[in-house]
Nucleic acid binder design. Sequence first.
RNA 1: UCCGGCGUAGCUCAAUUGGCAGAGCGGGUGGCUGUUAACCACUAGGUUGUAGGUUCGAGUCCUACCGCCGGAGCCA
Length: 431
Amino acid sequence: MAQTVTISEISKYNGQEVTIQGWLYNMRSSGKLRFLLVRDGSATIQCVVFKNDVSEEIFTNVDKLTQESSLRVTGKVAEDKRSPLGYELQVRDVDIVQIAEEYPISLKEHGVDFLMDHRHLWLRSRLQHAVMLVRHEVIRAAREFFDNRGFVLVDSPIFTPNAAEGTTTLFGTDYFGSKAYLTQSGQLYAEASAMAFGKVYCFGPTFRAEKSKTRRHLTEFWMIEPEAAYYDLNDDMKLAEDFVSHLVQSVVKNRRRELETLERDISKLEHIKPPFPRIHYNEAAEMVKKENPEFKVGDDFGGADETIVSEKFDKPVIIHHYPAAIKAFYMKRDPQEPQSALAMDIIAPEGYGEIIGGSQREDDYDTLLQRIKEHNLPEADFKWYLDLRKYGSVPHSGFGLGIERTVGWICGTKHVRETIPYPRLMQRIYP
RNA sequence: UCCGGCGUAGCUCAAUUGGCAGAGCGGGUGGCUGUUAACCACUAGGUUGUAGGUUCGAGUCCUACCGCCGGAGCCA
């Protein structure tokens, strides 16, 4: 009875007989030879069936195999320079678990819509598999980063009674007869958590009902949001650049093979280390104005404008001190320049757009109450949030990082929908 | 919501600007002892998104609708 092993660890068993269990990715044949490409989720290996090495029955059965049929293969691990993996399996026995029906996804080209309709199967293919492993590494490294720095995971709720920044972009649900919304950010609750634990982060799905149809948008996406008491904007920016650098370096180190599979130019990631360029909004606005005459100082940047700024640098760019008028109600204004918010965004290189938005929060009770009134927000729903400014208020800051945009940038994918297993878009909620 | 593009075989696409609906892949059958999206031969496969219109004749032109794509706005 041969030992059952995973393909990614096959090099440990060179010369030994082992069993692998997986699915048939592709088969080629040549007379008395059959080449079975078998994947098991960890990697893919070529299994060579030579007619004279197996029984007549096994050889006949192999010819019945179809793409994605499930099977167990037993054979001897052999080093082979012709194999991309470095090893192949010299087959002695094949145990067919199921003969797959005609598989919809061929090895040739398909359109995006067709592939998305078959997302549940598309995840098996090489490139999608690589992207998901990078996503896994980004999330693993993100939690590692905060855990190592004394941040506590304190998650925020997904159902919320109110709208942090207006209800038009929120998904409403019926909550036992009253209205509830799906969260668009865990931040407000993270602020409360930070007052209990000092340094916290929350990580979960967030929802935006905006009718956006671009390569950068999903209606459901994952965001990781640290929040720290006694952090000012400078502390926040330092934390953010250390964080982004750690994510990129972890992927470069631990998922290099996947980046190569994706044909990502790794040299563009290797030098992503602190410090990042930091530029004042006014400075960024001047850069944009030179190339986009329609832009007016005081406006928010559009996608193309962000790219104009990010193209000037080969690292992510931190833009800070945005005009308070275009930013959220909870952001503190700079006492030195009251028209500006203590806010910062990080724009990824190569046109991948905003991956981080953060700020120092307003910590004065009266000022915050005034902002809530100015924005016509339901005061009663924010009572608990205002409480934080009544009982030991402290300066504090935080930011949110969009997982999908970050993974998209690191992988070099064209559209964020390929960076989440089952994307939700305006026109898609299947599968 | 606005702007633009596209809907032809299971999939990816072609069809000479209005004149016999085709190819590759995938499926099926057969062949080949080292294939790398293997290759070779044969084979099955169609209400050209829907409805109407113009015309001797419409995949192609016109009108409406439906679906999809990605860009703007907004954002991570």
